[in-house]
Write a protein that binds this DNA or RNA. Structure first.
Lengths: 218, 218
DNA sequence: TAGATTGTTAATCGATTAACAATC
DNA sequence: TAGATTGTTAATCGATTAACAATC
């Protein structure tokens, strides 16, 4: 009996962490693991682990636990890692170059097809065998190449314009590093990486105790 | 009357977004805004906005709404942006360099003191006027300089070792870009940026509909 | 079989939304 | 004052945890 209900984002965001921990267990030749043991390592409750996994199927076995390799592979499939994705990066500045050079993504099945920038000083330079192309060629490129994921690494002022091109060319998933929110149709998925929001969260937490000490004093 | 209760992370993670939107309004010379108007722009409900802000104080005025500048500044203070932070980056690879070059952080009050790496080819090179130093000098440096935030951009195998040095030298906040979880004492805050988890979340969502189509077929 | 551990239901907890009295 | 909009309480919704029967 299949469940058609969409999975909550809270669950989805834990999946990559399961995958990472199971990969480590696998590399350490651990064959089986109970939700209780995994709980102690990963820091979620055993109950939550069982609930999470049961969203996708019955991967465990009573009295035994979970087979590490089988579960690792199942979660890999759930995450879509049995597939291959073509990506392009737009913006070859610091972050664009960092993402381009992160070879681990290639290993996971994310294949970088091309990099674009509008800066003449960068156009023509190679990053990992990819010549940086003029962003004016982006739309044409997307029309003649199938791209699954568009990666935006341009300044925030240009981000929406690039997103519009992506949408127009049928890209359904955008990985956005620009510090802004993108407007896209409902069928296009945007995953944001907002570094400065992460840093501000850190500075908030660093000051939190103090913040409320002052309040109490009032 | 001050509230001493800690704020939930759900609320905290929305604060930087409020700050960003208020900054934009300010730049567009918007003087006042109601929770309803802000709701339409930022995408949170008006009710949630009022609840969130009331965790920190009474910033609004009945019948008027919120003064944009005042609220912007208040949230800035809440986020700790009225203070100045010294940071160091360990790991001068792609991500380390990208973070070092992100000058916007400087503008927010995060001052980069030094960059470290263990690669002799990188040691001695300058990034934004900072000479990359040998990581063997890290501990000594931290003992003679006050550092608020340690930024980890080394491969995952070395990340815990660096975190241990940070903790030993009294650093209370770590911004971790290594794809691993760090073990630190309770009084040390870790903020993770796990790029590959973000990418896997994206690929999950790209495949979600399909995943459950298959399930139903069974 | 007995012990272990899952899958799953029920209970709890926390976060979001709705409603409205207070008040500018 | 009348209208608008907050601050805040109450209701709802969703996510996590606890409990335990099912079963390997």
């Amino acid at each position: 009996m299949g469940k058609k209900t969409m999975i909550s984002m809270a669950v989805v965001r834990r999946l990559p962490k399961y995958y990472r921990y199971l990969g480590e267990l696998l590399r350490n030749d651990v064959e089986r693991i109970s939700s209780k043991e995994l709980s102690e390592r990963i820091g979620f409750t055993a109950s939550q682990i069982r609930q999470d996994l049961n969203n996708f199927g019955d991967f465990g076995q009573q009295g035994y636990g979970y087979n590490v390799r089988a579960l690792y592979e199942e979660i890999g499939k759930i995450l879509g890692l049995n597939k291959h994705y073509n990506t392009v990066i737009v913006g070859a500045g610091n972050i664009g170059q960092a993402v381009a050079n992160y070879t681990n993504f290639e290993r996971l099945g994310f294949h970088l097809l091309a990099i674009f920038d509008r800066n003449p000083k960068l156009i023509g330079i190679s990053i990992r065998d990819k010549v940086i192309q003029d962003v004016d060629n982006l739309e044409e490129f997307l029309k003649s190449n199938h791209v699954d994921i568009g990666i935006i690494c341009v300044p925030k002022e240009q981000a929406q314009k690039i997103a519009d091109i992506f949408v127009r060319c049928g890209i359904k998933a955008i990985w956005n590093f620009a510090p802004t929110d993108l407007n896209v149709p409902d069928d296009v998925i945007v995953e944001n990486v907002h570094l400065s929001e992460s840093l501000l969260t850190l500075s908030y937490r660093l000051n939190e105790a103090e913040l409320f000490k002052e309040k109490i004093g009032r």
